[in-house]
Design a protein around this nucleic acid. Structure first.
Length: 295
DNA sequence: TTGCAGGGGTCAA
DNA sequence: TTGACCCCTGCA
């Protein structure tokens, strides 16, 4: 069995996949259930199966702390999963920076194994349009149905890839509604159509420029995308980390734990930018995950 | 068993 | 600034 080192991570081939040593600050349950993604299914304790970017993997934490990637080749690890799992980011440094008071220390400790996934842009856009005024089981169900119906087959699994936006743009609203997306059907079709006409790489490049408010406004031009969904897309597609999505849970935690900060979104943004700056998105994830499970 | 409120918002009036 | 919007779930 071959063994190699990739950017500080020791990668060893094992039957059916790879075992990684030297990955820190990663716990599958924290990363895959913190609300940033909808296509990772728990198959065992600290073991999840997911499909991303046309690839399939079963990712598990082994007892010795090593990370096992089943169904993944060394080439796929270097070419896709390393970046997807955000393995080049130093989470120890981020955690130290954002855990600047007792509340944040507790939130960071609670979600210590969260990594922000660098998800596909189109999949992230459509998934978070579906998330509006919705709940996680239903969002996951709709996304899976969309993949089953219009996605391409993926090697190594019965599950399918998230379809291209060009494909979704051709689907009727009635067909979309059959996947349980409800009134969001027209938003999905319209935004998939508008984005499939645009050059995605150029748009993503544009979204990295300017302030996070400007980037969010750019996305808010598309149907079904308001401020909160725009911020989620920017953060969870790995485009920028200075955004702070404010959903009901974050507003709840801010009101309860930081009553001195006014609960208007603008005031929260000002306080968060001053305090966390370019790491606001990471802070939001720790707070959100903590709030969801403790408040 | 049935009825109702509410959910990781957005949009239009 | 408000209410409608799909529809599933939890709870009384």
């Amino acid at each position: 069995m071959a063994e190699f080192n990739y950017k500080g991570i020791s990668v060893k081939e094992c039957p059916g996949g790879l075992v990684l040593s030297g990955v820190s600050d990663f716990i599958p349950s924290h990363t895959f259930t913190c609300g940033q993604c909808f296509r990772w299914h728990e198959v065992d304790e600290e073991s999840y199966h997911g499909v991303a970017g046309g690839h399939s993997a079963r990712i598990s934490m082994l007892k010795d702390g090593a990370v096992e990637l089943l169904g993944v080749t060394g080439e796929e690890f270097r070419g896709y999963w390393y970046n997807y799992l955000d393995l080049d980011t130093d989470y120890a440094a981020i955690k130290e920076a954002v855990a600047d008071d007792g509340i944040m220390r507790e939130a960071v400790h609670y979600g210590s194994g969260i990594r922000l996934l660098r998800q596909e842009f189109g999949e992230t856009v459509i998934s978070f349009i579906i998330s509006a005024n919705n709940n996680i089981p239903r969002i996951s169900g709709s996304v899976e149905k969309i993949c089953n119906r219009w996605g391409e087959p993926v090697a190594g699994t019965d599950r399918r890839a998230f379809p291209e936006l060009q494909v979704l743009a051709q689907v009727t609203e009635t067909e979309l509604r059959e996947t349980g997306v409800g009134f969001r059907d027209k938003y999905i079709k319209a935004t998939a159509g508008a984005l499939s006409c645009a050059e995605t790489a150029d748009l993503v490049s544009l979204l990295r420029q300017g302030t996070c408010g400007e980037a969010a406004s750019c996305l808010e031009k598309y149907p079904g995308i308001g401020t909160k969904v725009a911020h989620c897309i920017l953060l969870f597609a790995g485009i920028r980390y200075d955004v702070f999505p404010k959903d009901v849970w974050v507003l709840r935690v801010m009101k309860q734990l930081y009553p001195s900060i006014s609960d208007t979104p603008a005031d929260i943004d000002r306080a968060v930018q001053a305090r966390f700056g370019g790491r606001a998105g990471y802070a939001q994830q720790y707070l959100f995950h903590y709030a969801r499970n403790n408040l």
